[in-house]
């Protein structure tokens, strides 16, 4: 199979040179230095490697790079615009919803997709949607609070 030479990340076309079977995670981290996307388990169980593919959260560790051609990839580095934090990033800071921070980018991107589908999620909806993301430091309560806060921030900015 032909090598993959280009993907679209955070709004720009990026040159790469990868075997089609290479995971998107490795391409992002090792070829594009987008290291905000983390390796956590390699089996899609922890969510640290979550990216958005056309706005849908996906496990980049299990995603062959060949499967993303023609799709828009968003990583944590692509969330802030013009140095201005996305409301979710701001809310994670406001609620101090992190300790070591290693799960944070996966949490924020998963929550991004939740808020797009459900702008005003209940606590139960947040828990269910976020279930696939592990925070070993156990900051879950604050993450739920941060998602609630981001929902409020986004409602205000849309009002």
């Amino acid at each position: 199979m032909a090598r993959i030479t280009e993907i679209e990340v955070n709004g720009s076309a990026r040159r790469i040179d990868a075997d089609p079977e290479t995971s998107l995670l490795h391409v992002l981290r090792d070829q594009l230095d987008l290291t905000g996307t983390k390796y956590g388990c390699g089996e899609g169980e922890c969510g640290a490697c979550t990216v958005l593919l056309d706005g849908i959260p996906q496990r980049s560790c299990l995603m062959p790079v060949a499967a993303v051609s023609g799709k828009r990839i968003t990583t944590i580095e692509g969330l802030a615009t013009g140095g201005r934090l996305h409301p979710l990033q701001q809310a994670f800071l406001d609620e101090q919803a992190l300790q070591c921070g290693y799960c944070t980018s996966g949490m924020i991107l998963t929550a991004w997709a939740l808020l797009r589908a459900r702008p005003d999620p209940s606590e139960q909806e947040i828990r269910e949607f976020m279930e696939g993301n592990v925070c070993r430091c156990g900051v879950y309560h604050r993450i739920v609070a941060a998602i609630r806060r981001a929902s409020d921030l986004m409602k205000k900015s849309n009002a």
């Binding site: 990583t75 934090l85 101090q96 992190l98």
Partner: peptide
Amino acid sequence: AKIDGREFVTGE
């Protein structure tokens, strides 16, 4: 607040 928290929520 965490002194360099911004670097963590931006993936930097």
